[in-house]
């Protein structure tokens, strides 16, 4: 029983991490039709920013930890917004080329991270409490899982509130449905593009700092390895659906933990799940068939 609880909570934590990456991917794809290959780099950059900050301030203090989260999120947001403004926007409406540019960016940035921080793991320090465990239904759960799950829940709530209660949110929701019609109402939808990139970058940057605590280290390939699972999550959840991404993140994270523990094949089970979903529901759990003229 305690093993099941431990696996479930850890899986939920992993799912939370996937969601922090997948939420941005899904929003960006939904609104702009762009698959952002550089999203993993936003995450890695956020993680390294957090790492550098805690290294300087002393990683075991709570203020340093919180500051590293804020810095990671901010760095992710700025990197993402700049990517949109400088690279993506120049290729407006040319989706394949936009994808190619993000591919180039991810290659270049990962190499640059290796140049700066080396390809070996950089180990992070955290407040002692994060490394301790808490008893829950007989299982000893590492505390960082709770922080992860809480952060992902807050991000989900924050994005939902933003989408529901702000004008940009309104434009984004409408744009995901029918971008051409939004412009035909006199709205410059490109400004919303920068906003979704920044939101996605914020979540990814935050996810980077949290991932570095989940795994215990940062490496230049941290983002890339999470990105692939985030891609799977967005396809399973339905491209462009935030709720779908949330559900699929949890499903994939938990399934992966259980499959890893009992059979040692977590990654493969996830790919099988993807194949199964594609065979039964090619558009994903909550995806709609994209209607485009």
């Amino acid at each position: 029983m305690s093993t099941v609880v431990l696996l479930a909570v850890t899986g939920l934590g992993l799912g939370a991490l996937y969601f922090l990456v997948a939420s941005g991917l899904s929003l960006i794809y939904g609104l702009m039709g762009v698959l952002n290959f550089a999203h993993g780099s936003f995450l890695t950059l956020g993680a390294f920013a957090g790492f550098e900050l805690t290294r300087r301030l002393g990683g075991d203090s709570w203020p340093a930890f919180v500051a590293s989260l804020v810095l990671g999120a901010a760095v992710g947001a700025v990197a993402a917004a700049l990517t949109e403004l400088l690279l993506i926007r120049r290729l407006y409406e040319r989706h394949i080329e936009q994808v190619l540019v993000t591919v180039g960016l991810s290659l270049a940035t990962v190499a640059l991270f290796e140049g700066i921080w080396g390809s070996d793991p950089s180990y992070v320090t955290a407040p002692a409490w994060l490394g301790e465990t808490t008893q829950l239904l007989g299982a000893r759960i590492p505390n960082d899982r709770f922080v992860l799950i809480g952060a992902a829940a807050l991000v989900l709530l924050g994005i939902v509130a933003f989408l529901r209660f702000t004008r940009f949110g309104l434009i984004i929701r409408a744009g995901v449905e029918n971008r051409a019609m939004v412009t035909a109402l006199g709205i410059d939808v490109r400004r919303a593009f920068t906003v979704v990139f920044a939101i996605g970058g914020t979540a990814a940057g935050l996810g980077g700092v949290l991932a570095s605590h989940y795994f215990g280290y940062v490496s230049p390939h941290l983002g890339g390895s999470l990105l692939i699972f985030a891609f799977i999550v967005t396809v399973i959840g339905g491209l462009g659906s935030l709720a779908g991404a949330a559900i699929a993140s949890v499903a994939v994270g938990v399934l992966q933990q259980f499959a890893n523990f009992y059979w040692g094949v977590g990654d493969l089970v996830v790919v099988l799940l993807l194949a199964g979903v594609l065979l039964l529901r090619p558009a994903g759990i909550l995806g709609k068939k994209k209607v485009q003229a």
Binding site: L170, I171, R173, E177, N178, M181, L185
Partner: peptide
């Protein structure tokens, strides 16, 4: 916009 309310459709416009 099917997913938006009537009021939101108008507000957007």
């Amino acid at each position: 916009f099917a997913g938006l309310t009537v009021a939101e459709n108008l507000r957007l416009a």
